[in-house]
Design a protein around this nucleic acid. Structure first.
Lengths: 218, 218
DNA sequence: GTCTATAGGAGGATAGAC
DNA sequence: GTCTATCCTCCTATAGAC
């Protein structure tokens, strides 16, 4: 029982560390990075300050961990949401749906810290995270280009992304319903507003097998 | 010469105070409210900490002063911009133009503090400023309704405002040109993207004497 | 892994001389 | 109005016992 060399993967108490990162995300989200002390975080998880510094080397490492999780959760959600969606409008809807849930769902604190406290990271930390977050931007960019090439939107894809994404991030200030009540109606309304169409017209186009760039709808 | 009762309007060194508010705006904008110390602000204007507290009662009063100025400057700009603009698209363009300059022009620091640090204000300070900032939202809302009533947009006016305004505020992250270089091309592109029209089509509709709700175009 | 205790400094704000 | 000097609280982080 003692000394099981192959399976003892030196797991640095990952459970505790995740709890700490979760608490930090919530508190950073509410009070800001500079406005939240390590003492407060320690209190939230029921540890002393010294114990926090046993799990993380510094307060900034905690911020980096929060943002890194945000990026990875976001990537996972959006990858899953886009899987199998082949039509331009289908992909738009999936993207909007996934991002709205990222911003307003259970893990909204993490996403908020990502967007609000990004500049508080040191340059080296930003460089480390930049690659992953660029992937996220690329997915959005590709979707915008697909919409553009199929004449659903008429502004260049970059500008269109700059219109849509801040609007989705801003929903956290005016969506106040329970996480999953907002589903169909809200997502369709936002997609329609972005395309400047009445909701009915958006749904009609969504459901018709329209000019589909990547084939494969039977 | 001494004792001139009528004209001695008891002006509490307004020059200095404005300098301090300006410096605070710049530093709050760059480092955040919690991340900026009164010491740093004092250094920026060449005063000691104690002298700062001769002009303002607390650090929070300084934040309130910055945001109050932001709101008032914004109101003044947008009022001036909308003056004489009667067509729906003309008003949209004026609003976008004014707001882009508020966010990216010389006074961009003040606007940024307004949007980013709003929640750091005490409840009483927020209540004091709420009325003025509601006027700003109302102007936007009215413009959205005008566009809706004239069938330039198809989403309800509230949602349309939630699409447009965060996008305009977000321009500060991707507009990097000198303040007034961005004029015509950029503003028209954003208006067109919001209406989901090609830029040419937007300009054509803007310049035609279209269905004008409030008359008065000769 | 967790704690108590504490270092060492920066924070907002004040006292009182000039 | 401005300064120097200072108060006291809070901060991040560490030392070392258990």
């Amino acid at each position: 029982m003692l000394n099981s060399p192959a399976t003892k993967k030196k797991r640095r108490s990952p459970v505790r560390r995740e709890d700490i990162v979760d608490a930090a995300a919530k508190l950073f989200s509410e009070g800001g990075y500079d406005g939240t002390s390590v003492r407060t975080i320690a209190g939230e998880v029921g540890l002393s300050v010294a114990s926090i510094f046993h799990h993380v080397a510094s307060k900034e490492e905690l911020l980096e961990a929060v943002i890194q999780r945000g990026i990875e959760l976001g990537m996972a959600d959006i990858d899953a949401a886009l899987k199998g969606k082949t039509t331009p409008l289908g992909r738009l809807r999936a993207l909007v749906h996934a991002h709205i849930h990222l911003v307003n769902g259970d893990r909204r604190h993490i996403h908020r810290v990502w967007t609000v406290e990004w500049l508080k990271l040191s340059e080296s930390a930003r460089a480390r995270l930049e690659m992953r977050s660029a992937e996220y931007r690329d997915i959005i960019q590709d979707t915008m280009r697909l919409l553009f090439d199929n004449e659903h939107i008429f502004a260049e894809p970059g500008l269109s992304g700059h219109l849509l994404m801040p609007a989705l991030n801003w929903t956290r200030t005016w969506i106040h319903s329970p996480p999953d009540k907002c589903d169909r109606e809200l997502v369709d309304s936002i997609c329609a507003a972005f395309l400047n169409l009445p909701v009915d017209e958006f749904r009609k186009r969504l459901n018709s097998v329209e000019g589909c760039a990547s084939g494969m709808t039977p």
